[in-house]
């Protein structure tokens, strides 16, 4: 659903601002912030709760599969056997770079440089696609090693959390591509840099979320109880979870 709103968001883009511009005597904005930009900020705030809930879910179940395994229950590969940190670090780096190209795209259009805009938007979309490809191969290799969505609680929580992040990236990629197309049709004038800026806000957000997920899911070791995990767990214990 968050995605649905996100798409909408963009959808607004070309639309309603036009309408606001129509009222000459209409106060364009009491806060000075553009309405669509504000809308995007609000959406991202709400999306924080969305990922917050998913991440909380993951942290609550983090390590449970291992515990079940030790107590003889449960089946399937466990996190520390299957996660390939070097591989994912690379794709994480790719996504990180895409934030850079996004910045460059915005900079170009603000300088009125249409070609630059297209190149950098295209680059960003490309890097995003590479990341998604990486995730696809990761998922399918996990599948071969016998970890499916329903294999154990680790599989379920892992694929759900990273999957929904992937969905966010996918939407972002489509958004960027449609921006490229629009600009090809001369649709993104310099004074419409905002359209790019808003897409950028979304893209950077998705990028930051990945840094967090990457740390919590991949970097913090599973075998020995790591501190962050441990503290998180104290909190969850308090409310009967974890």
């Amino acid at each position: 659903m968050a995605q649905a709103v996100a798409t909408l968001e963009h959808a607004h883009g070309a639309g309603d601002v036009g309408h606001e511009a129509e009222h000459a005597d209409h106060p364009h904005s009491s806060t000075g912030l553009d309405s669509r930009k504000l809308l995007m900020w609000l959406f991202l705030a709400s999306d924080c709760m969305f990922f917050g809930s998913l991440i909380a879910m993951y942290m609550i179940y983090r390590g449970d599969a291992e515990r079940m395994f030790l107590s003889g229950q449960g089946s399937g590969p466990l996190a520390n056997e299957i996660l390939d940190i070097p591989y994912t670090s690379i794709s994480a780096f790719v996504l990180l770079m895409s934030s850079l190209t996004m910045v460059l795209a915005l900079a170009s259009i603000q300088r009125g440089n249409q070609r630059g805009l297209r190149v950098w938007l295209g680059a960003t979309a490309l890097l995003g696609t590479v990341f998604l490809g990486g995730q696809f191969f990761e998922f399918s290799s996990f599948h071969e090693e016998g970890l499916g969505l329903t294999t154990n609680i680790f599989g379920s929580s892992f694929f759900t959390l990273t999957g929904f992040h992937g969905a966010h990236v996918t939407i972002g990629v489509f958004w960027l591509i449609s921006l490229v197309i629009v600009s090809l049709r001369g649709g993104v004038r310099q004074d419409q840099a905002l359209n790019v800026e808003i897409a950028g806000l979304y893209w950077h957000f998705v990028d930051i979320v990945w840094i967090i997920i990457f740390t919590l899911v991949y970097l913090i070791p599973y075998d020995k109880v790591a501190t962050v995990h441990h503290e998180a767990e104290q909190g969850f214990r308090l409310i009967g979870l974890g």
Binding site: A2, F50, S53, Q73, L149, T150, I153, S156, S157, T160
Partner: peptide
């Protein structure tokens, strides 16, 4: 967003056979 996520997990439990809320499956 909280109920969105809880419902998504329920959807997976019901449609995909995950066990987010099933004690037996580690949920």
């Amino acid at each position: 967003p909280a109920i969105t996520v809880s419902l998504l997990l329920l959807t997976f439990d019901r449609y995909a056979g995950t066990g987010f809320y099933e004690a037996a499956a580690g949920g």
